[in-house]
Computed example of a mutant assay.
Amino acid sequence: MHASAPVPEFAVHTAALTKRFGDLVAVDDVTLTVTPGEVFGFLGPNGAGKSTTIRLLLGLLRPTSGTARVFGVDAGDVRRAHRHLAYVPADVALWPMLTGAEILELLAALGPGIDTTYRAELIRRFDLDVDRPAKTYSTGNRQKVALVAAFATRAPLLLLDEPTSGLDPLMEREFRRCIQQARERGQTVFLSSHQLAEVEAVCDRVAILRGGRLVEVDRVEELRRLRRTVVDVTYRGVAPALDDAAGVTDTQQLDRNRLRFNVAGPPAAALRALAAAEVVAVSMREPTLEEIFLDYYGGAAR
């Protein structure tokens, strides 16, 4: 009896991954890990290096330095690495004379196996007419073909690069359902996106890429805590004395009896200041992932 092969510790592992194009450094010393079964968000605006990183993971580009591995296999060993993955690009190109059904069969034959029952369900859910030739498909329908092919595969890793471009809101909801079902099956999802609400809704952890460099990797809820709590206060009489309260920043007087401020870290000092005033109403909220993301980019991103 043969011992089973050990399961790799990481679905994706990059170490000091760097890619230069002449004087341009597109990916700069990126080190990250994605564990099997995780839904991992990869965030950044156009030009941040997201797609270049994915092309390095796919073995379509060779790194200038550093390494990229997929389930323990060097990404440059394309034949072996691609046994573990399915890929959806941002701009899907299909064989124009083949029908959607023929393309799905071709992609199934090339990949690591397919769940045909689930594929038929996805075709219905994405409202995809597979009897038409691909040359008649809109951008959204081309995207649907790629998504159906990827989600129906048994590949342990789904590499999705801006996968919902061209989809309407109803189809985006189906996409999120598919991500959840992939997680339940134990598949790993690497989702590159600039749609922050999408990433916030489906991902376990998020990496933020800026100018080719990682500026943060953490769980979504931890990223929120790294920033601040936004507090709105309505009061009577004298305003709360917040000037010396630890962690309070950016106090704004909204009108005569309303103010807003941010709290970083424990809120005890701010709460004591509020308790000493005649407060009528208080609302507190965590920042969205979009607000956190904009903090990294400042005025340039705005």
Score class of each variant (00 low, 15 high):
Ala3Cys: 01
Ala3Leu: 10
Phe10Ser: 09
Thr14Gly: 00
Lys19Glu: 06
Arg20Pro: 03
Arg20Val: 08
Asp23Ala: 13
Val27Ala: 10
Asp28Val: 10
Val30Glu: 05
Thr31His: 02
Val34Lys: 01
Val34His: 03
Val34Glu: 00
Val34Met: 04
Val34Arg: 06
Thr35Gly: 09
Thr35Glu: 14
Pro36Arg: 07
Glu38Thr: 04
Val39Thr: 04
Gly41Arg: 10
Phe42Tyr: 15
Asn46Glu: 12
Ala48Glu: 03
Gly49Lys: 05
Thr53Pro: 02
Arg55Met: 11
Arg55Asn: 13
Leu56Val: 02
Leu58His: 05
Gly59Thr: 02
Gly59Met: 04
Leu60Glu: 13
Thr67Glu: 11
Phe71Tyr: 14
Asp74Thr: 04
His84Glu: 08
Leu85His: 03
Pro89Tyr: 07
Ala90Thr: 10
Leu98Tyr: 07
Glu102Gln: 15
Leu104Tyr: 02
Ala108Gln: 02
Ala109Pro: 02
Ile114Ala: 10
Thr117Tyr: 03
Ile123Gln: 04
Phe126Gln: 00
Asp127Thr: 06
Leu128Phe: 01
Asp131Gln: 13
Arg132Ile: 12
Lys135Pro: 07
Ser138Met: 08
Gly140Asn: 08
Asn141Arg: 09
Lys144Ser: 03
Val145Tyr: 03
Leu147Arg: 00
Ala150Val: 10
Arg154Asp: 09
Pro156Ser: 04
Leu159Asp: 10
Leu159Tyr: 06
Leu160Trp: 01
Asp161His: 07
Pro169Val: 09
Pro169Met: 12
Arg176Tyr: 04
Ala182Val: 02
Thr188Ala: 04
Leu191Gly: 02
Ser193Cys: 05
Ser193Tyr: 04
Ser193Asn: 01
Asp204Trp: 02
Arg205His: 12
Ala207Glu: 06
Ala207Lys: 04
Ala207Thr: 09
Gly212Tyr: 09
Leu214Trp: 04
Leu214Val: 15
Val215Tyr: 09
Val217Ile: 14
Arg219Gly: 14
Arg224Ser: 01
Arg225Leu: 14
Arg225Gln: 15
Arg227Pro: 02
Val231Gln: 02
Val233Gln: 06
Val233Tyr: 08
Tyr235Val: 11
Arg236Leu: 12
Arg236Phe: 11
Val238Leu: 11
Ala241Trp: 08
Leu242Ala: 08
Thr249Lys: 03
Asp250Gly: 11
Gln252Tyr: 05
Asn257Leu: 08
Arg258Gln: 14
Leu259His: 01
Phe261Arg: 05
Val263Tyr: 00
Gly265Tyr: 01
Ala268Ser: 13
Ala269Tyr: 01
Ala270Gly: 06
Ala270Met: 06
Leu271Phe: 15
Leu274Trp: 06
Glu278Asp: 15
Val279Glu: 02
Ala281Gly: 08
Val282Asn: 11
Glu286Asp: 15
Pro287Trp: 14
Glu291Lys: 06
Leu294Val: 11
Asp295Arg: 06
Gly298Met: 11
Ala301Asn: 05
Arg302Trp: 13
